[in-house]
Design a binder for these strands. Sequence first.
DNA 1: GCCAACGTTGGC
DNA 2: GCCAACGTTGGC
Length: 151
Amino acid sequence: MRYWLMKNEPTCYSLDDLKRDGSYVWDGVRNYQARNLMKEMKVGDRVLYYYSNANPTGIAGVAEIIKAPYPDPSQFKSASEYFDPKATIENPRWTAVDVGFVEKFEEVISLHELKNDPFFDDMIVTKKGVRLSVQPVSEKHFKRVIKMSTQ
DNA sequence: GCCAACGTTGGC
DNA sequence: GCCAACGTTGGC
């Protein structure tokens, strides 16, 4: 099993929304590096659900991959804001996955907390200037985050 | 293939 | 809402 971190704005789609809906189509990723990482995802992988543009920003809980990567349907829909005229059914360009709800932390583990702990120095999300919306997470970082959430 | 101009992300 | 730091586009 692998671990990931995915960013979303809570005003756009929050963990509460995911808990209510049960599943969510994670589409609209239009960054090649993020897409390539999504292609590596497997059913059962765990995802740290990260709130960006929030107060505070940080990790709000855990989701899991419940559907393996597949062509992002929104790239073919001309009415969609994510429409990509260069993508075709035969040659899709972008990838989506479905995620399911696992847990919501009592409190968001803020980016500030992560940055203040040297343990997370080599975690991508704490690095300055990295805007990647999908990131791989090491097992040790994932487990430490889970541990922090229960304290 | 370089690189300037432009668009986007995301913390603050 | 500002703006730094990226990524992408497109002319050449």
